[in-house]
């Protein structure tokens, strides 16, 4: 029991008639990076806000870091930290002042608070920007400061709501490194994301959420296995042979003009080998081939019957 950082049963939150979270069970082991993946409006943020004591659930129960969410919210708050989707910082103050303020609120003395702020700013590569107002920070700096603000006291459990939304690839990679480093130091991390790649890259376990319900859960590999097949990709040596190759490969093969690539769902390596042999037998030379797992995009499609982007546009 104690090895669970989060244990959620039948959690619900309604806003009027809308069931933002319509009954979710979740078990997050200590030390894990757990990703809640879903499109906009799936209920990810609502779920996170409930677990971070910001929003009372309509129904259901949850134990967070060993304390009942409803009855021991204060004890939960002492062990968690949350970095919201929008920087939860005072834009008028400097980065340093923000951290000192929060350290003082935690109960550090004046000198300790200053020392803690200095150490965090150095760790997060913000020492040069320490005395600048947060409103002058870039998106990546802001996000780093926001995460630093969650680490004044090392939390047992850190909530990150869409930690890299709106960041450029470089800043995103930086935040990913941070998250991995934190997890390595023993902090349990629950993050939400709408980027499949992010969940794939970071998370030990992933829960896929859609319309307030969990529609799948597992490791990235398990989720991919749920689509039941791998994907064989083939590039014929001569572009003119694509048509012939499609005919040989038969039903299910798809030609993509981009890169001249043909992709085909297969049950495994044995089938892939057989298909490649068939191409060779037909005299079609293959310049390049690969056998890979389906992407999480394809997994999401398999689970919901809708591509992720379409959902987003509808939300």
């Amino acid at each position: 029991m104690t090895d669970l950082a989060i244990d959620v049963r039948g959690l619900q939150r309604h806003f009027g008639k809308v069931k933002a979270v319509a009954g979710i069970d979740l078990a997050v082991a200590r030390g894990q990076i757990f990703a809640v993946l879903g499109p906009n409006g799936a209920g990810k943020t609502t779920l996170l806000r409930m677990l971070a004591t910001l929003l009372p659930p309509t129904d259901g129960s949850a134990t967070v870091v060993g304390h009942d969410l409803a009855r021991e919210a204060e004890a939960v708050r002492g062990k968690i930290a949350m970095t919201g989707q929008f920087a939860s910082l005072d834009e008028d103050l400097t980065g340093r002042e923000n951290l000192i303020m929060l350290a003082r609120l935690w109960g550090f003395g004046r000198r300790q608070a200053r020392e803690r702020a200095r150490a965090l700013l150095a760790d997060f590569d913000l020492a040069d920007a320490a005395t600048r107002q947060v409103k002058d920070y870039s998106g990546g700096m802001r996000r780093r400061l926001d995460i630093a603000a969650s680490l004044i006291v090392t939390p047992e459990l850190l909530f990150l709501d869409e930690p890299t939304t709106g960041l450029d690839p470089n800043a995103r990679a930086g935040v990913w490194r941070l998250i991995r480093g934190l997890a390595a130091s023993g902090v349990t991390i629950l993050l939400t994301t709408q980027y499949l790649e992010e969940a794939d890259q970071l998370a030990d376990r992933i829960a896929v959420i859609d319309h307030g319900r969990k529609i799948a859960e597992g490791t990235s590999r398990e989720l991919k296995a749920q689509t039941g097949s791998g994907v064989l990709q083939v590039v014929p040596a001569a572009a003119g042979e694509a048509e012939a190759a499609l005919a040989v490969l038969g039903e299910g093969a798809q030609y993509s003009a981009e890169g001249g690539r043909i992709s085909l769902p297969v049950t495994g390596a044995a089938e892939a080998r057989a298909r490649l042999a068939a191409l060779e037998a037909a005299g079609i030379e293959v310049a390049e081939f690969s056998l890979g797992s389906p992407s999480l995009d394809e997994v999401f499609f398999a689970l919901t019957g809708k591509p992720l982007e379409e959902e987003e546009a509808a939300a």
Binding site: R104, D123, G174, A184
Partner: peptide, 27 residues
């Protein structure tokens, strides 16, 4: 950019004595 991971993973900072309500208000 220096890699921030190493330094952070070293630091585990425990919670200090909870402050008084007055101290919170003064902050």
């Amino acid at each position: 950019m220096s890699d921030p991971v190493r330094t952070i993973s070293l630091a585990h900072v425990a919670r200090p004595q909870p402050p008084s309500a007055l101290s919170n208000a003064l902050v």
